[in-house]
Each structure stands twice: as C-alpha cells, then as structure tokens.
Amino acid sequence: MSDSHNVTPEATEVENNSTSVEDSTTSPSLKADTAGQGDKPRRNASLWMDAFHDLRRRPTAIISTLYILLMVSMAAFPWLWTRTDPRDCDIGEARLHPSSEHIFGTSVTGCDYYAQAIYGARPSILVALFGTLGVVLIGGVFGVLAGYFGGWIDALLIRLSEIVAGLPFLLGGVAFLTLVGTHSVWAIASVLAVLIWPQVARIMRASVISAKNMDYVQAARSLGASNTRIILRHILPNAVAPTIVVATILLGSFVGAEATLTFLGVGLQPPTVSWGVMINQAQNFVLTGYAYLLIFPAGLLVGTVLSFILLGDAVRDALDPKLR
C-alpha cells in the first residue's frame, strides 16, 4: 500500500513530463489539442490512483492493511503495546497458563508471553523487509537489464537466474547459515535475497519487454533520450506493477521463512525474541499440554503472512484492468 503511495506522484509526474516534451517539439495545432484534452474531467488520473480507489472498496484489502499496520506498529513502537520488558523473566513463574495477570501466559523461562509476542514482531518483520528489499533490488536491476538490452546480457542473466533457482532456498539457506555461524537478521535476510531474486527478475524482465515496445518508448528514443532516461522515466514506472505485487506476497512468505529457518535451528537465536524463536523454544512443551505457547506466536505469524498474501492478491486484481 505504502509502495503505491510512493509511486503515485512519480507516475503522474511522468505523464506530465512526457506532455511537456511533446509541447516543446510538436506543432502549435497539436499543442492546442492537448490543451483541449486537459479541460475534460480526468477521472482516471493514473493507474495507481485508479488502483488505490479500487483497493479502498475491497474488504480484504482494508482488513489486511489494518492488520499489517498493527503488526508494523508493534515492530516499530513495541512500548505502545506493553510496558513489560520481554526479558524481565522470573524462572519461578515459568509456563503459567494465560490469566488476567499474564494474558498470554508466561514463556518457558518465565517471561511475560504477551510482551514477548509484541517484541517478537520486530525481528520477524525486519528479516522480511530487508529480504524483500534485497530481492527487489537484485531481481529488479537484473530483470530491467535483461529485458531492456536483450541479446547476450539477457541470455547470460537468464542462465544465471536458472542456476540460482536450481538451488531450493531451504537447502541453500540451511547450508550457508549453519556454516556462517552468525544467526543475525542480516545473515538471514541476505541469504533470502541471494536465493529468491530470480522470481522477481523473471517478472520484471517480462514486463520490461512488453513496456519496451510501446509507442511512447519509441517516441522517447527517436527524440534522442538516453537509455538511462528511457529506463527510469518511461519503462520503470510502467513495468513496476507486477513486481510490487510479488514483493507484497514475498514480504509475507519471508516472515514465514524466517520462522522456518529458526525452527530448523539455523535462524535467529535467543536472546533475540522473534515469533520464530518463540515457536522454537515452545516446541518441547507443545506436546505436553502447553499448546498456547505455540498458538499465540503462530497465530500472529500466520495472520501476518496471510495479510500480506491477501493484500498482494488484492493489489494484483486492482492493477489488472482486464478485471474491471
């Protein structure tokens, strides 16, 4: 959602810009034409405004955005949600079932489980955020280069992405993270970025190829615009939509991926508190009547993953003009 906000002014700016380029070069009669068009009420200001209006009418989009905002506020300002320190633990009060004093109960080591669940949002969401940024950066650059330049660059990058896609992320992640020894947010995010980027590169490449053949790109090129300008001003704003959809969905899957890697023992580790770490620590007690130790962090986790996936789906539907 915030992504589409960021892009909106840029996309409209591009439209304005391209008209101004036309203005300076085309004949006066054409100029009058464009001016006449400007008088009409512009209902569909841009694809992004249009999509935004569409999204506002979708209940799943609203609910999942609200849930995500809730989780992000936990990650950014946990003290808004709880005054208890998640590391202030009393081993004598270990594994207390939920009560009025500890609404989520207490953890294996006697910490307040509610405070842990709140503070656990930050590492989980940071891994997802940095991982997705990395994937979009690597995959985006490679996809644009491959799609725009074609030829041997394309062939090389396709081959490279096939090679990376040939290594399932779970296996590569386990191998690297075991040996690297440090179990930080950065290590996990970078392994995700390095192994998942082909997904974005492929999509970016396809949309760049279809944008490349548009008339306005030909026009810009015949006006002598440089490759950099064409890519940044004309192709990227028109090819970025599918990538934003995938990135939204990836944010969700990466929250799940962090927890999975942590579960396998190669992800984040205590004293870091994350949802994955909480689930992992609860494991040995889940089968002996302490199911709540699993349910609370897993519930927050699943809600987050679900929200990102549903939001991604909603954005995809909103951006697809064929469905209107």
């Binding site: 899957s253 799940g256 927890a259 889940v286 699993l294 897993a298 699943v302 679900l306 996936i309």
Partner: peptide
C-alpha cells in the same frame, strides 16, 4: 490454497501433532 500458503509447514505439523 491461501490458508495453506500462509501457515508455515512446521506450524501445521505441530498442530497436527498436538
């Protein structure tokens, strides 16, 4: 489909186990 994508396998596994 949406549900199974969002529930990580290990959470589903633990729930089934419990």
């Amino acid at each position: 489909t949406v549900l199974f994508i969002s529930v990580p396998v290990f959470v589903l596994g633990r729930l089934v186990q419990v």
